[in-house]
Amino acid sequence: MIRSEVLREIAPILADQLVVCNIGLPSQELHMIDDQPTNFYMLGTMGLASSIGLGLALSQDKKVISIDGDGSVLTNFGTLPTIANNVANNFILLIVDNGSYGSTGDQPTYAGGKTSLTEVAKACGCDNVVECQGEDTGKVLQEALDGDQMTIIICKCESGNVKVPVITMDPVVIRDRFMRAVGSI
């Protein structure tokens, strides 16, 4: 299973949740599969999906799912201790770990080598860390949503990309319609 297949499978679960989606192909794929006002697409700033999602979860009561990648978590490793020490039980961090930098041409990441993001998240003090295979992501994500506990999901899947158009929506439009969906404006 590759990331776009995982996203396609979990799209019905994501549809009515607040989603902060990682820069590049993940956002472009989610936008193509099921564009929703509840999706915040990152157009720049690799690595901050988890930080934006945590800030959002700590600031209002609705559930928040950040969709991140292994490469992006590696670029903002400091996020995991911050998440562990600022528990927001309405926050789910879904790391799609395909062992590669997908958006830049599938160069291998260290997460696909000797580094286990699951073990790193645990070592950083995160309490509910679940590793699953791509096929099981929907089930694990639904359980996390039902569980009312902050959860870090590491979804192990294969690298590979599909052809997908870039997002041409204006960033202020993305932000404005997202905030209306949040209910903060």
């Binding site: 902060v20 915040f40 700033t45 690595g47 901050l48 999906a49 988890s50 930080s51 934006i52 999602g53 945590l54 800030g55 959002l56 979860a57 700590l58 600031s59 209002q60 903002n76 400091g78 996020t79 201790p81 911050t82 932000r175 997202f178 905030m179 949040v182 209910g183 903060s184 404006i185």
Partner: peptide, 18 residues
């Protein structure tokens, strides 16, 4: 925050949360 760009991400989320 552990790094200032991480902090700015947190602030962006908080702003969108109201």
């Amino acid at each position: 925050a552990n790094k200032e760009d991480e902090g700015m991400g947190l602030c962006a989320g908080a702003y969108m949360g109201g």
